[in-house]
Design a protein around this nucleic acid. Structure first.
Ligand SMILES: [Mn+2]
Ligand SMILES: [Mn+2]
Ligand SMILES: [Zn+2]
Ligand SMILES: [Zn+2]
Lengths: 143, 143
DNA sequence: GTTTTTATTGCAAACGATTTGCAATTGCAT
DNA sequence: ATGCAATTGCAAATCGTTTGCAATAAAAAC
């Protein structure tokens, strides 16, 4: 039994509820998503899926990601540079620090920053619908 | 004499110093940039430039923007959705609130947020090279 | 001012990520 | 098992941006 078993989201159930069919490609993609904890892009998901079933197409990966995104099951991030990256949407809100040398993504959260963002928007007469806070940095070198 | 004459950046001088030629297309594009205070995209700049000299091409707009960006004279922002948007780099650092209904861009700055970002990065063992803070919101409706 | 040397241009074609039309296939309700 | 709508893979299209190339024009050299 997995340590975090109770946290595993049941995408299949969610999909059924949304009235879409549980196909073989979708099953494979969903499993990849639940089994990964990083922020893969469509091509990475495609390659991992191909390893399981080589008939799965990149189009289907993109279509499935869009579907899951619209269902709110995953988040899509457009970090700097190339492709969009995805992650499961079940956890709490967080922002990202991207290592510009390695591409590694580190998650963080600051209640204080979130509050300040709200204050700023309010002062400007706006309600925040969503936001994007990304720090691009480099590992500090020991001096 | 313009109220803000002293703040107008002399791009032509900067370009000369960078060893590039002051061509007619570049002159037109530079004037458009200095005369605008919003965040136009390449197509908007192209259209404004076309009105002055219909022979200017979109390629040249893109090439000029890249040149200015590399010189540090302008900033390029990849807000959500379509095209990249540009702005003069002379002012102080600020972040952006984007009106998701109109596309309007409102600038703001929070020293407190900037400090907190630094603290977070430091705690994670990183130095921030640059960051991106964008609030996407909607005008608050009077109740 | 004229010639020479190069950088710069416009154009069309290439690009990379993502989306889409379509005919063939499949899930699933009957 | 049957029927039909949802889904698929494929190739082609899309969108913003970049690039190769031959023609042009800026600045340097005369
Ligand atoms: Mn994340
Ligand atoms: Mn700005
Ligand atoms: Zn946040
Ligand atoms: Zn900032």
């Amino acid at each position: 039994m997995n340590q975090h078993a109770s946290h595993k989201p049941d995408y299949e159930k969610e999909l059924r509820r949304a009235g879409v069919r549980i196909t073989r490609p979708r099953k494979v993609i969903l499993r990849i998503l639940t089994e990964t904890d990083d922020h893969p892009d469509a091509m990475e998901i495609f390659q991992r899926a191909s390893a399981v079933d080589s008939s799965i197409s990149l189009s289907t990966v993109y279509r499935t990601m869009k579907l899951l995104e619209e269902m709110g099951a995953i988040h899509r991030h457009a970090f700097e540079g190339g492709r969009a990256r995805f992650e499961q949407a079940d956890g709490d809100h967080h922002d990202h620090l991207i290592d510009i040398d390695t591409g590694d993504v580190i998650e963080f959260h600051s209640n204080r920053i979130e509050e300040l963002q709200e204050e700023i928007a309010r002062a400007l007469g706006y309600d925040i619908v969503h936001h994007r806070l990304e720090l691009y940095g480099r590992k500090r070198r020991r001096t």
